[in-house]
Every structure is written in structure tokens, then in C-alpha cells.
Design a protein around this nucleic acid. Structure first.
Lengths: 230, 230
DNA sequence: GAATTCGAAACTGAATACAGCTCTCAGGCC
DNA sequence: GGCCTGAGAGCTGTATTCAGTTTCGAATTC
């Protein structure tokens, strides 16, 4: 019955994606029976996966009332962006201090190789994937798996809003989403020069620029989530 | 059957405490049936609680092999301390920027009121509780609930080692554990003066001072955990 | 004596069953 | 009309059950 890849893991992955994409509307109550049918598993593994997601902040839980989607408010999103600043700036600082030269060079290389894709990509999903990938690699540089873990969690919860933000930028710029590759370059440059203050400042301003748009992005998110269709 | 206070919550709290105190030895496999009897609940709610703790990093999980206690290594503890630096320094920075004067004053007040207790306390457990309480209050000042959440999680996982560190300091100082109250005062002073750089620097050095002893503390932890009996 | 294989015991994985709580809505009351 | 009430349906909480996997030791072989 139990296979190599557990049912809970499969259910968990599916649910994490659904929660990240707000397939459940903010504050929506989650019906376990219905969901277990959709996912093709019984309530027992489903509830185990739901409990993990509660611990990760994707869902909330009320006794005898069950699981709910996390709320979506500007304040919540701002908090997530600020937490990202905390984690990524410290990761940058640590990378400046102790990342091996060759790993830094590899990251710079990665940026160079990705540039064509970055410049040609139009789909916000692609851009976001590349952006997240860069930030994840940078976090790897610092060699601290806790910071990586926290960042991964924050990114999952903020992804939906970042996607909206990218779409918004694309629409404003007239069909072309602006890659942040120059900002990324500046950060890597700072790290390569072991110039901690410069690298951290670049990272901070890079993230905070997006944070300022959180309120507007949440407004758009709501209109997308609750407009009847399309 | 289901009461006001759920069984899962009760089991979860008990397990969190056990995991924090390394009632399970590092890497030890956890027997669900035995544990469910000890805790007076069936395996279903137990597993739900265990899953939460996996998501929080207190335990690990392997398919078809069950739950294990998290490992305990110097590197892991250093990572936790570094993550604390990230979170608490940013919390300090935000507090400097936007905490209301009266809240800062309240924290300073709290420090004054606690001073006698701080000076007279000898039990490391008490000292640690007061120290954690101060840091939690400071994190509240920044008004970011994500940073508070992350800090709470990190503190839970690092507590055991911090306790050992305090005991070690007490033993060295000859029966009296040194309160860090002066360091705390300096941080609050920086915040009250809205001197961001000073406050953050004070916080950073306050935490990093402890981090440097992590390796030694882990060594002691191991000897305590594996010595036959006291 | 060491390595290997096989089988039983112990354990985990997941479905099911049912008890108890919550929510809804019809009906009665003010 | 608005508000309370209570029964019923639906949902959650948890124990139990059994299938499938891992583990461990004894018997066997080299």
C-alpha cells in the first residue's frame, strides 16, 4: 500500500501549490472530505499534510472548525517582504565573509548565462522562476541551511503576490517585464569585491523596492481572486 | 470526544517540549505506538502533531521509516544562531524606525523592573526565560508578526544549547550566572535614541558572543545526553 | 567464523468507522 | 419583522483496523 513515494508527500506537494496559488480563497474554510476525494487519498494522510502546512504558515487551523486558507492583507505581505529583507541581507553578509571565490564566480557565471533568457522572457512565471532561482543560489552561498529553509518558506507564501507585481510591471512597461538582472549583478559585484556594506545595501534596496508595491498588488490580487471569472 | 482544547494541541505542546529538551536523543527514531501510549492518545492525533514538528524543524521524517529527532551538530547550532542574528537585527532596525515612543519606554521599564530578579536569579532556567522574554518583547516592538514567528521557532530549537551555555558561564563565574542585562540595556538605549546603527550593532554583538561558544556547548550537550546517568 | 538468506515480529501507512461538535434553517415566539 | 430555539445534516476528532514495509535474528552456507 505504501509506495516509494508516500501519499502524504504527494498530497503535501499538491496542497502547497494550491495554497501558494490561492486555489483556496483567503480565509476560506477547507472541506476535508471533498478535498480528499479530489486528491484521491483518505482524510488521514490529507490531515497530516494540512498540519504541515499550518506549521509552515500556509494555512490556519481552528479547533473543531478545521483548516482555513491564510488571510491575504497588505500588512501580512509587508511582513513577508520585511522578513525576506532580514534573511537575504544576512545571507548576503555571510556570503561576503566566507563564500569561496569559485562559488561566487559560479553565481556570476550563472547570471551571465541566464541573461539572454532573462532578456527574452515575457511570461511573468518564467521571470519569477529565474528570479527565485537567483535568490536561492545566493542564499546557498552563505552556507547556512536554516536561512535557506526560511527563505524557501517565505518565497512560497509571497509568490502569488510577486507574480502579480511582475505582471503589473509588464503591463505598465507595455508588454515587457523588466528583468531585475542589473540589480542582481550589482549584488554579486558587491559580494565578489567582498564589500559587505555595498552588497547588503544593494540587496536591501532590491527587495524593498518591491515591498513598497505590496499594498497595490494585494488590491489587484483580491480583484483577481474574487472576480466572477477570467 | 473532541473537547474545547484539542488532543492534538495537548500532544503537540508535550512533544514540542520533549523535542526542545532532547528527550529524544539526536537522530533517535521515534516509536509511534509507544509514544502514543505515553501521551494517552492514539496514533492518529500523534502523527498530526509529529507532522507539525517536522515542518517546524524539530523532527525529521523518512518515508516508511517514521519520525526521528533532529540531529545535533555544531554546524546546525551555528546556523540557528546566525538566523537569530538575521531576524533580531532586522527587528531591531524596524523598531528603531517605527516603534512608538511609549512602547520603547515600556520595554525600558520592563528591563528596570526585571533587574532585581535578573541580578538575584541563579537558576539558568530562570535566566533563560527572562532573556527570551526580553528578546520576544523586543521583536514585538517591530510590529512584524512573521519575524516574531520565526524567532519563536528558532528559540525553541536553540533553547537546549543556550541553557547549557548559561550553565557553563555560571560554573566558570563560580556559582553566579552573569546576566546580560547591560547588553540588553544598550540595545534599548540605541532604539530609544532612534540610533539604528548603534542598536543593531549592539544586538549583533550580543548574539554573536554566544554563537562563538556553540561548538563547545554542543560538545557538553552530547556528554550530558549520552552519559549513562547523571 | 563471516557472510547471506529467509522468515517472523514489529512498525509504519492509510482507510474506515463512529462519536461529538458546529452550522444551518425551519418553526415558534415576542 | 426580528429573535430565539432546537433538530438535523454535515463536518471534524480520534480510535481502530489491516495492508505493506522495514528490521532483526536465527538458520544456513561458504
Amino acid at each position: 500500500m505504501a509506495k516509494r513515494e508516500s501519499n502524504v508527500d504527494r498530497v503535501y506537494e499538491a496542497l502547497r501549490r494550491m495554497a501558494a496559488d490561492f486555489a483556496f480563497k483567503p480565509d476560506q474554510r477547507i472541506n476535508e472530505s471533498a478535498l480528499s476525494e479530489v486528491l484521491g487519498a483518505s482524510r488521514t494522510p490529507l490531515r497530516e499534510a494540512l498540519n504541515r502546512l499550518v506549521a509552515e504558515g500556509f494555512l490556519t487551523f481552528q479547533n473543531n472548525r478545521g483548516f482555513f486558507c491564510r488571510p491575504l492583507t497588505p500588512g501580512y505581505i509587508m511582513d513577508l517582504y520585511e522578513a525576506r529583507v532580514a534573511v537575504e541581507c544576512e545571507a548576503t553578509r555571510l556570503a561576503c565573509t566566507r563564500a569561496p571565490d569559485e562559488d561566487i564566480a559560479a553565481l556570476a557565471d550563472y547570471l551571465n548565462r541566464m541573461e539572454p533568457e532573462y532578456e527574452s522572457a515575457t511570461a511573468p512565471e518564467e521571470l519569477l522562476a529565474m528570479d527565485e532561482s537567483f535568490h536561492a543560489r545566493l542564499a546557498q552561498l552563505c552556507g547556512n541551511s536554516e536561512l535557506q529553509r526560511i527563505l524557501n518558506n517565505l518565497n512560497g507564501r509571497i509568490r502569488y503576490i510577486r507574480l502579480i507585481d511582475l505582471k503589473r510591471m509588464r503591463d505598465r512597461a507595455g508588454g515587457k517585464a523588466p528583468g531585475d538582472i542589473s540589480a542582481h549583478r550589482q549584488i554579486v559585484k558587491g559580494i565578489a569585491a567582498r564589500n559587505t556594506e555595498a552588497a547588503v545595501a544593494a540587496m536591501r534596496s532590491h527587495i524593498e523596492k518591491r515591498r513598497e508595491e505590496a499594498t497595490e498588488a494585494v488590491r489587484i490580487a483580491f480583484s483577481q481572486l474574487y472576480v466572477p471569472d477570467e
